[in-house]
């Protein structure tokens, strides 16, 4: 229980996936312009990331390791993630076309969201047990969502700010992310596994 709680705490705040580990920067910069899309993206990521960790962990432990096929890790993991994304995309298009439109290109691009692949790889590398791996997936996706939602809130206000010409757009977003990351540095060293 203690380990599980520390995993949750560490990967949401201390070792935040976006702000401290640099996973999933593309969607973080891409869909954080509006709160609505940021929330939608977070939901999709939470679902895909949790499922991905669960499935890849089981596959790795019970198939790849059993048959000495560890070198197929990258190919297997990316295919699992790509299928999961498809699984989210198809119903979403039917259920909520507005959200589907809003997420735009970033939904299929969850496949190339490094955060998801990173969670799957790290769960294996850190030698987490099954429950720990799933909790790790949930915590990492919550950390991602937290960063994304905070960023969307800041950027909605930034729209009204007076920004120097050359820093317009991505440059000021990155500097804002840096300051946000600086704030999260405050949690540094509070907990380690």
């Amino acid at each position: 229980m203690e380990t599980l709680l520390s995993i949750i705490f560490i990967y949401i705040l201390v070792d935040n996936f976006v702000l401290q580990r640099f996973f999933g920067i593309c969607p973080f910069l891409g869909v954080s312009r509006k709160m609505e899309t940021a929330v939608g993206m977070s939901m999709a990521v939470i679902f895909v990331m949790t499922m991905a960790t669960l499935v890849t962990w089981l596959l790795y432990t019970f198939v790849l390791v059993q048959f000495n096929l560890e070198y197929l890790q990258i190919v297997t993991f990316i295919l699992v993630i790509a299928s999961l994304v498809q699984l989210v995309e198809t119903p979403l298009r039917k259920i909520s076309p507005t959200l589907y439109q809003g997420l735009g290109i970033f939904l299929p691009l969850i496949t190339t969201n490094c955060a998801i692949m990173a969670v799957a790889l790290l769960a294996v590398r850190e030698e987490f047990a099954f429950i720990e791996a799933v909790v790790f997936g949930v915590a990492a996706s919550l950390g991602f969502s937290l960063a994304l939602v905070i960023m969307a809130g800041i950027r909605e206000r930034l729209e009204l700010a007076n920004i120097p010409d050359v820093l317009q757009g991505s440059a000021v977003t990155l500097i804002t992310a840096g300051i946000l990351s600086l704030a999260f540095q405050g949690f540094r060293g509070m907990l380690t596994l």
Partner: peptide
């Protein structure tokens, strides 16, 4: 980590 964001932001500028 924060320095990475800030340095890249300034470089983009």
């Amino acid at each position: 980590p924060p320095g990475a964001f800030i340095a890249l932001g300034l470089l983009l500028g």
